[in-house]
Nucleic acid binder design. Structure first.
Lengths: 94, 94
DNA sequence: AACTCATATTAGTGGCTACTCATATGGTGA
DNA sequence: TCACCATATGAGTAGCCACTAATATGAGTT
């Protein structure tokens, strides 16, 4: 099994958690601070921070400081299109 | 959080295992018997069977009997395109 | 420096999940 | 029906993963 499959599976696995996926979709193609993500998702600060670390370790999101905030954005914005595409595919299948 | 996100996350989670992803990619757009999948992946019969059940429960694959064999195929073949797309995206990012 | 606000980290825990070994089911052909 | 092949299932286990509570870090402001 090529290393490619491992990498691919890892990304999919990281995205395969409802809370993380919610965070990713909430970030969208823009960038959002942790506080904004807490509000948008309704999750606790600790939990959002925990998931953001997982997303960052997987290089799915990247960070940038702006004033007192740390802004998260997708490192591969096209990921959103892929997720949308998958979402449509699933809905068609029902 | 909409139910849609849950469904989407579930699919991603199921695909987010290297062995399962290998099985899915091995099936591709054709259909393969369990024996063929065992050969293609190098996994044990029990393990392949185990993962196929997970894939089937998630409605990612469907089955069809042909003689002594049970053939597995993707219930949404376009899934492969999406996986390929994701794969390309990840590789570009390195 | 001290205070505050935003965010990260640590430690601990329960539950899930991938895996294996052994066994069972069920179709097919003699 | 019996034997064989293909596939599925059950039980048991180790390791991982999401989550929480408490605490720490660190930038910005006064």
């Amino acid at each position: 099994m090529q290393p490619q499959i491992e990498d691919l599976a890892k990304i999919l696995k990281v995205l395969g958690d409802p809370n993380r996926l919610g965070i990713v979709m909430s970030i969208g193609k823009s960038s959002r601070s942790v506080t904004e993500l807490i509000d948008a998702t309704g999750l606790s600060q600790t939990l959002v921070s925990f998931h953001l670390r997982v997303l960052r370790d997987a290089e799915i999101v990247k960070t940038e400081r702006g004033g007192p905030f740390i802004y998260y954005s997708l490192s591969m914005p096209v990921l959103l299109d892929i997720i949308t595409e998958l979402s449509n595919t699933i809905n068609l299948n029902k």
